[in-house]
Amino acid sequence: MRTTAPRRSVRRTVAGAGVAVAVLAAAVTGCDSGEPASGGERGPRAAAPRWNTAPTSVAAVGDSITRGFDACSVLADCPEVSWATGGDPAVRSLAARLLGEAEVPAHSWNYAVTGARMADLAGQLTAAAQHKPGLVTVMVGSNDACRPTVSSMTSVADFRAAFERALGQLRAASPASQVYVSSVPDLQRLWEQGKDAPMVRQVWKLGICQSMLADPLSGAEAATARREKVRARVVEYNEVLREVCAKDELCRYDGGAVFQYPFSSEQLSRWDWFHPGRDGQARLAELAHRQVTAAQPPR
């Protein structure tokens, strides 16, 4: 006598195989529909993007520091000594340390502009995104605090909105680019380094960061309060940089490394004692390289 399996068992077997195939496909692709699985739990999510400690191209955006202003000659840019993308062997820029000096000219780009503020960042990032760089360095904010008066400093709310907008535009144009964000330097510490030199005070009168550097020797209550307000605003800017960057899986804030770095007079420009000189640029490159190549972001 020929026997046949009950139809119900056959259907059950086929259905079970279908479920197994579906589960296997989901595991291989890492797909997550976002819908809750049985029991009210979500299925497995795709792994978050991993930080690449060896990017193969670098684009830089920001202000005069990244342009190497006053590092080579008075009141002039000197991008060849830029901490981010310069080719000067004495500096060993971040790009040189990551890519090798021979690769810097072809695989790095400097879109920083002397005098730029956070509101200018979106345009710079749009230009940088055309190259689909492996890494974008951001150092901006000093000019938002360095204004003719304390009252004309960029508000924290506007600073945040501009940074969020700029980072969002970069993500839309170049989703895979990593972003290294430097903290804003401690402007009060830079004032302390140069205030006692007569020649430096004369240069500062030309209009450099008057919110901090005006009346550099004054110990009056108003002058002291003015400098403290500028420093407090820089601290607030850095908190914005940290918070906004933390929301992006491919953004790494330096943990305040640049703000905390104790720049000495030997590391500052010999023309204005405010911007980093060659040695200061080299220290910035060293700090950035340490952060970019670390397995984990700074805490």
Rank of each mutant, 00 (worst) to 15 (best):
M1G: 14
V10Q: 12
V10A: 10
T13K: 04
V14I: 13
V14K: 02
A17W: 15
G18E: 12
G18Q: 10
A22G: 11
A27V: 08
C31L: 15
S33Y: 03
S38G: 09
G43E: 09
A47Y: 06
A60R: 03
V61E: 10
V61K: 11
D63T: 05
I65Q: 06
F69Y: 11
F69M: 03
F69N: 02
S73H: 12
L75H: 15
A76W: 01
A76S: 08
E80G: 10
E80R: 05
S82E: 11
T85L: 02
V91C: 12
R97L: 09
R97I: 03
E103T: 08
E103F: 11
S108C: 04
S108E: 05
N110E: 03
G115H: 01
A116L: 02
D120F: 01
A122V: 12
P133L: 01
T137Q: 04
M139P: 03
V140Y: 00
S142K: 00
S142W: 00
C146V: 08
S151E: 15
M153T: 06
A162W: 09
F163T: 11
R165T: 12
L167W: 08
L170V: 06
R171E: 14
A176N: 08
A176I: 03
S177V: 11
Q178K: 12
Y180D: 07
V184K: 00
L187W: 02
L190G: 07
L190A: 03
A197K: 14
L206G: 05
S211W: 13
S211K: 13
M212V: 10
L217R: 02
G219I: 05
G219Q: 08
A223W: 10
T224V: 15
V230P: 03
A232M: 00
R233H: 14
R233I: 13
E239V: 04
C245W: 00
A246Y: 05
A246M: 01
K247S: 14
E249K: 12
R252H: 05
Y253Q: 11
G255F: 03
Q260S: 13
Y261Q: 01
S265V: 10
L268I: 00
L268E: 00
W271N: 05
D272L: 04
W273G: 15
H275A: 05
G277Q: 07
D279R: 12
E286Q: 01
P298L: 09
R299I: 12
R299D: 13
